[in-house]
Design a binder for these strands. Structure first.
Lengths: 152, 152
DNA sequence: CTAAAAGTATACTTGTACTATAGACTTTAT
DNA sequence: ATAAAGTCTATAGTACAAGTATACTTTTAG
């Protein structure tokens, strides 16, 4: 049930962009290099990932000197599920229980296939978390944890 | 979050073996060929999978003429989680939230990493389902569904 | 006791997806 | 005009998944 590096790096970058830049609530614009350095990722690889997120409407960018990437919508309107699906595809463990990208699997009777029933539950459990957690939720959670631990 | 073919076939085979052979509650012994045919799987590939399950103590086998595979324990003592881990490895989407196979990931501060927090939730949601569902549960669920639909 | 049925074990192949890396191009600020 | 930044496409190396092949061992029937 692994999350790919692509997915991992993309989610990390989006979370970084969701953190407030300063006291103001202006959108946090960051350059690829800046994110790559901070997260310890190859800048070129991250480039592709951010591009995919942009092409799917989750990021905007500004070209030229002083440019960078920023969230296309406010952090509480972007869910982890949206990001995940762009980078890693459907959430479902097997295609035959996918809501977004259904395909039949090979079982004789899909209606009463035991494996399908359980995998359907798994899919729902994962989707419940990813689709109800926004970037803002993640940032908030990080923040209160840092506060509790007395860190920066 | 895909389930590999290896995992899928193995789980299907185990469920098949968990279904009662007849009225008696003797262990259901089946040959590789028999399972492969029923599930529409390559027998040679299934062979490897069943061997792995045997070497990890989930199956027993009887060699020679009239032999076959059967569950090493009763169907309610084998969980899907056990089978899954043998065939597909850890349940956790990222290694740094794995209970069974922890490894650090690259984040600056693991304690307050937002991604890690969420992926921990995902891991627990998946593990909750797989580790509390036994083969017997799956068979029971299939049975009641078949009954409800009036099928065989 | 021997032949055939069945599982054991390992090695090989083929394809695809992951994880990048490279390089040429476009836009923008100064 | 130039340099800083993003855009886009192609390619490469590696690892892993999925499936094949082959040779060997154990067991039972006859």
């Amino acid at each position: 049930m692994r999350l790919s590096k692509r997915g991992e790096y993309g989610l990390r970058a989006m979370i970084a962009l969701a953190e407030p830049a300063d006291k103001s609530d202006a959108p946090h614009m960051m350059q690829i290099k800046e994110i790559a350095l901070r997260e310890g990722i190859s800048a070129k690889f991250l480039e592709q990932i951010l591009l995919a997120l942009k092409n799917n409407g989750l990021l905007h960018s500004k070209m030229g000197v002083g440019g960078g990437y920023y969230l296309a919508r406010s952090a509480n309107e972007i869910t982890l599920g949206q990001i995940f699906r762009v980078l890693d595809g459907p959430v479902a463990p097997v295609k035959c229980v996918s809501q977004m990208a259904y395909e039949p699997c090979g079982c004789p009777d899909e209606e009463t296939c035991g494996l399908r029933l359980v995998m359907g539950d798994v899919r729902n459990a994962i989707a419940d978390i990813l689709d109800t957690t926004s970037l803002a939720d993640v940032v908030k959670r990080q923040g209160s944890l840092r506060k509790k631990l007395g860190i920066k």
